[in-house]
Design a protein around this nucleic acid. Structure first.
Lengths: 192, 192
DNA sequence: CTACAACTGTAGCACCTGCTACATTGGCGG
DNA sequence: CCGCCAATGTAGCAGGTGCTACAGTTGTAG
């Protein structure tokens, strides 16, 4: 049975850092435990199996994504919001790594198999909500924000799939500008 | 050493069917071989290791995607082209499965590790070219098509990540309509 | 028939996987 | 000091992984 104490939280945070660096798909307990200075035995003591650990990592990562989004400086328009978000999502920092992790998890859920599908669904809902809030704070009318957030999210995740292929080039910048225009239009700021 | 004969091509086609059904990420040689009525021993005789097999499967799948795209009935506008493409990409048929496989491969390449990154890059280039051609056939000016194809592709891949979460609902339809409008605008058919 | 090459079946290697049984430690309340 | 219990170390299990060594078994050309 899994614990729910302070140690578990510490391990979840540290495991999240490790997974952000090394990827989720090929994650395996022993190397992770070694990097954390513990043993697979202890991970399975604090977590209810590998799936439970992964769910905790995904939850932690998603919370970091949302916190990062909320901490972005305010922008005056939806167009600027999209551009700023992509800048933050592709600068090699925390947000990029968290979103990359989400993409990995979503890919693992592509066949609808649990536990991936369920965990990814939860993460997606929370993230979309935060994204809509962020658009509203940039001047988007509240009733238009969810729809704008939907397209923005889909395009953003797709761009992340291309990111490792185009690193260092500006091949994606055009798409981002086009995306910003499209989202602004949906948000009723077509000419802003 | 790998062969390059007829048998290899047969195996690649059959393996592609299997992978489209069962996913790439958890692919393992023995179950695949059993489903194909052969042995892992023979797969490794005809292919130069698992990576070579996977590359062949991805190549086959991508060729099928492109062939499917080229075989779509002609449409009169870019907007219609996007809507028709999404319909074909989400009907549970061959194209949806091939694109899902591409998303899996791209997720495996998220950390830039070979052989994934290289194979995915090749597949992406060919697919983007076919996508641009398809937009041109729908009335998009040739010099605008690559840019429109870029955004369309990114959004499409992102939507595929959401597809298993929203299966059976119409939650993605709004995004697709918005995307069609955005791509039409980029293609210079903003009011068409 | 012989010789050769393409192909395939059997068995196994070394390593990794998530997970568990068991014994031990350490600290705290009685 | 005792007993308790959470936390941890050691060792190992059963099964899976990609891959290979070796011995055939075909089919065909000389």
């Amino acid at each position: 049975m899994a614990t729910d104490g302070e140690r578990r939280r510490e391990l979840a945070e540290a495991a999240t850092d490790y997974v952000l660096d090394h990827g989720l798909i090929e994650l395996s307990l022993r190397p992770l435990a070694a990097a954390l200075g513990t043993s697979d035995r202890m991970l399975l003591y604090h977590f209810d199996g590998k799936d439970d650990l992964v769910a905790a990592v995904l939850h932690t990562s998603n919370e970091r994504s949302i916190a990062h989004l909320r901490s972005l400086p305010a922008v005056p328009s939806v167009r600027e919001a999209v551009l700023a978000l992509w800048r933050a999502s592709s600068d090699g920092g925390q947000l990029e790594r968290c979103q990359r992790l989400y993409v990995e998890a979503a890919a693992l859920g592509l066949f609808g198999r649990e536990p991936w599908a369920g965990v990814v669904r939860d993460a997606n809902r929370a993230w979309l909500q935060a994204l809509a809030d962020w658009l509203v704070s940039a001047g988007c009318r509240a009733e238009l924000a969810p729809r704008a957030a939907n397209l923005l999210d889909a395009a953003l995740m797709g761009l992340h799939l291309d990111l490792p292929l185009e690193r260092g080039t500006d091949a994606l910048d055009g798409s981002v500008v086009d995306l910003a225009g499209a989202v602004a239009t949906i948000a009723g700021q077509g000419s802003a």
